[in-house]
Design a binder for these strands. Structure first.
Lengths: 230, 230, 230, 230
DNA sequence: AATGAATGAGGTTTCATTCAT
DNA sequence: AATGAATGAAACCTCATTCAT
């Protein structure tokens, strides 16, 4: 089974990240490719530093060491660079690689591995996740993006839950999609709190990552009434 | 026990909503009070309609049928009216009244009532909650506000969990605060999805409120391993 | 003889402070008189604290503990209160009383006494003088006021110089008015530097008043070639 | 010796006009340089016409035939353009060139030449001097600018006085700095009266420049008791 | 006389986007 | 392709003055 995750979408089948993939054709020359890449990198840095709303296009071009006008050779506006930034990071954000435990039929172990993979990915991309949260509140296009990303996770986990129900491992009373939404949401909220909101908190040192994984997994397993663990 | 809830703050004891309570002295005359009230009402309407960022002060004064300058008789800026709007709605948002089941010792029933009360309050104030989510991404002052609001709920529920653990009704392996954060977060995510994000969803009709309450309650109870229910 | 002074006017004969004397009739009731007085006092305090330009009418009414509207019962605008403030202080600013040495024919002693009186008056009213300098740069009406005030001093001193020339005590080569303008200006510049600009200076402690008087007097006497002193 | 002058600053060694020299990097292109220059010229014209306070930024851009926003490409605000205006005129205001009489040891002739040079420079820049007086009353930064400018003159003259004292040509009883402040101030007051205040005066025709120079020089020489001149 | 709320004109400032070089 | 200056719409905010109680 495949667990976790919050308010996002895009399974492997669905047209991935639809609205954001409408990018113009890639630069023809090498120099063009270099400039474009510099802009994307710069944009990510500026967005993560200043937030989407406070980021000015000139900040980005300045950071990329190119002229203000050059921006428009590659992007139509701020939204479009952000799309490029997210697209570039998408791979890592979407597919929290977890090959290891796949081969077992210990549902609990699989769940735990899955949660760990999700949380690690979240931690790795914390600033980007924070950015996405912000943008989603402001730009409908990205609200949709976030929704699809979340949905992808939720569906995946729902499939896992349904499977476990079939195997008699999970409580059959709950609707798999609803349960998945609730539990995936639970994990994503914890991730947000630990890696985004927690960043700025003075209280408490850094989050105990393993404790987080195990608490979340335990609650999830309990919620589905996994049999006889612990 | 007293359950549920997401990213909010301020118990009955703590200085309620600290940063927002720094209000200037109330208007001295009746007319002043009327104008101020009109502005707050107008602001709420405009904020809910256009969002915080797109709301222009002149829209608010226009809606309140007063001159642009009058705004500044009562508020220093957009933030301050929003504070007033939230303050006015605070009562209802903070204390999802649930007197009924208090007297029972049936933990499950109390939990369910508590969740229902929370979700009802969320639904009643859905637009405001959406607004708060948006503003929290943009204005640190309101991020703090949201955090305190969430914390209040989380603490309250953590106390409930600890109590149940003491009575042997809840799983003693989990840290009450962490579990509360996870489960309260789970409920708030569901509420957000149902009443905020769901508003704009085309798919699916209106959310089945009772199903929501019972699913959430069941997962919560399971997660804490309430004994032998259902 | 009667010395000193800067760029101002109003002798005893000329229509004193013409543009400022157009005040409305005094308040009829006792209460009115009290309010008006409070406003003038408050205005002086606010002007001296914030400067003329930064002083807001509401600051003045607040300081006077009365309503904004009440201001217009007594004054048409900011200029008019300032006129009232200056008028009230005029006596002391214009007639640096110096009776003592009058009876002597020692020109040097008279000159010194006169300078001392002028400088003492300037020091006493330093904040008001600073205010006047500021306003004169901004409001033509008060530029004129300052000019008349200066002229009065200059004319008075010019008469003194002419007299001394007649008695053979002062250099006959210079035009009394021009010399008076130059030397009176010299004293006023020193006063401004010592009591206005000097206020904010960190360097040097407070000005040595007596040294100031004697230097200024010596230069003045020398300039007119008073015979054989010192 | 090197005489004259009032409220000014910055000798050849000191960091010249400190607070105003914090300029951003100059425009990179020719067009940029042209626009910037047009703005400075326009600003000077508008300031001299309307005064600093009444000058609106839009007046300046209109006068410079460019868009309102273009202003901010080169200046952050009104203060900054004024700084540019003053900086551009500084050379002429600060170094009233007078090479001619340098080679003589006739102290009186040198003094007279120095005074003439100062007064000529003042007259040439009369409108700017008036502007500086106004701004100094309003913007602390420019008050400081004026102070430094004056100080430079005063120090220069003080050195001259000290030298003459050493040569036995000037009265040794007075402190050179104080005397310089007084006499330099005297000259600047006369200049202000003749070229700034006098502009708007109806009475009297244009000032007799040579009479002004000679009166001021005579009083100055007398004040320091230059021996047996005439 | 006093009160204090209401008014509204108008300047400043920002910054995404365009465009001439 | 790159440059960087020019554009201008739009929103905020101030505060002297008026006016209804």
């Amino acid at each position: 089974m495949d667990s976790t995750a919050p308010e996002e979408s895009d399974s492997e089948t669905a047209p991935p990240m639809a609205p954001l993939s409408q990018l113009r054709e890639p630069p023809a020359t090498k120099r063009g490719a270099r400039t474009r890449a510099a802009l994307v990198t710069a944009a990510r840095r500026v967005f993560e530093r200043d937030g989407y709303l406070d980021a000015r296009l000139t900040d980005i071009t300045k950071e990329a060491r190119c002229a203000a006008g050059s921006f428009y050779t590659y992007f139509a506006n701020k939204e479009e660079v952000l799309a490029a930034v997210l697209l570039e990071a998408q791979e890592d954000m979407l597919h929290p690689g977890m090959g290891r435990v796949q081969a077992t039929d210990d549902a609990y172990a699989v769940l735990e591995a899955s949660n760990r993979a999700y949380l690690e990915a979240y931690r790795r991309n914390a600033k980007l996740m924070a950015l996405l949260e912000q943008v989603a509140q402001v730009e409908p296009e990205f609200r949709e993006f976030r929704r699809r990303r979340a949905d992808a996770f939720i569906r995946r986990n729902a499939r896992g839950i349904a499977e476990l129900q079939a195997r008699g491992v999970a409580d059959r009373e709950v609707d798999p999609m609803t349960a998945s939404r609730a539990l995936s949401g639970m994990v994503s909220v914890m991730a947000y709190h630990a890696f985004v909101a927690g960043d700025v908190r003075d209280e408490g040192g850094p989050v105990d990552f393993e404790a987080l994984v195990s608490t979340v997994t335990r609650l999830w397993a309990n919620a589905l009434r996994f049999p006889g663990h612990r």
